[in-house]
């Protein structure tokens, strides 16, 4: 205990030992490393998506659907063709909650307890907003459109489930559910963690501890969730 305190002020080489070469605490480093490995989990799902989607490249019987024919609804605007508008709204919500999160972190640096609390609250609202949007989006996807798809035996299939969907090949629906579902699960756990931290902030735990590093750590996680959404948005909706 003593040697680290006495020697941290000494000018030593970055990698010379006795201190962190990155000048960050082990907790934040752990969070970074965890996020790196989580990025690989998401990548494996996106790889599966890329593989399967490209395996439909020359399939003319059941081509991969174009997203603007699938995700073209907006709440309260029934029957209006608004491709991607709703997803863009979700993207903005998530980016905005990221901004409030980083503002909370910044307020934490200034030890401004009230501001941290306010921004954390806004972040949680943003997370819940995003989850509600996703719930609507899923409902829309599952119930499907009026037209549906004609099956071989003449019946019409509406919407989607894990075995089948009206939009295109089976894996299209499967991948939609698994990719956005896994992301949604991350958002959900992020919201839960944020709520815990928010309560701690209000309770003054970090005020007592002397620093708001915990807020930074969950902040990293929250931004990561945002980051993943950027790529889900790009690969699943745009391309």
């Amino acid at each position: 205990m003593s040697e680290t305190t006495t020697l941290t002020n000494v000018k030593t080489g970055t990698w010379g030992g006795g201190k962190s070469p990155f000048s960050i605490s082990y907790g934040k480093l752990m969070m970074w490393i965890f996020l790196l490995s989580d990025a690989f989990t998401f990548s494996s799902l996106l790889v599966a998506y890329g593989f399967i989607r490209h395996s439909y490249a020359s399939n003319l019987v059941t081509p991969w659907p174009s997203p603007d024919h699938v995700f073209n609804h907006f709440p309260f605007l029934h029957g209006v063709h608004l491709p991607l508008m709703f997803v863009s709204l979700m993207t903005f919500i998530l980016i905005f909650s990221s901004v409030t999160m980083v503002l909370a972190v910044e307020a934490g640096h200034r030890m401004a307890k009230k501001e941290v609390g306010m921004y954390m609250f806004l972040t949680i609202l943003g997370g819940i907003g995003f989850l509600s949007c996703q719930a609507w989006e899923w409902t829309q996807f599952i119930t499907g459109t009026h037209e549906g798809r004609m099956l071989a035996d003449g019946s019409i299939f509406h919407g989607a489930n894990l075995q089948m969907n009206q939009y295109g090949p089976t894996p299209f629906g499967d991948l939609f559910f698994i990719v956005t579902g896994f992301h949604g699960f991350h958002v959900l756990s992020g919201v839960v963690i944020n709520i815990i931290i928010y309560l701690n902030v209000l309770g003054g735990t970090y005020e007592k501890r002397g620093h708001y590093e915990m807020v930074e750590k969950v902040g990293l996680y929250w931004h990561f969730v945002d980051l993943v959404w950027v790529f889900v948005f790009t690969f699943y909706y745009l391309i």
């Binding site: 490995s37 690989f40 399967i52 894990l162 894996p171 698994i178 896994f182």
Partner: peptide, 23 residues
């Protein structure tokens, strides 16, 4: 870096086995 990929793979396999997907 590699175990998460197996995690993803295993997740998809569980879905194939138990929920009728076709990954």
């Amino acid at each position: 870096l590699s175990f998460p990929v197996l995690l993803g793979a295993g997740l998809l396999l569980i879905f194939d086995r138990s929920f009728g997907t076709s990954f």
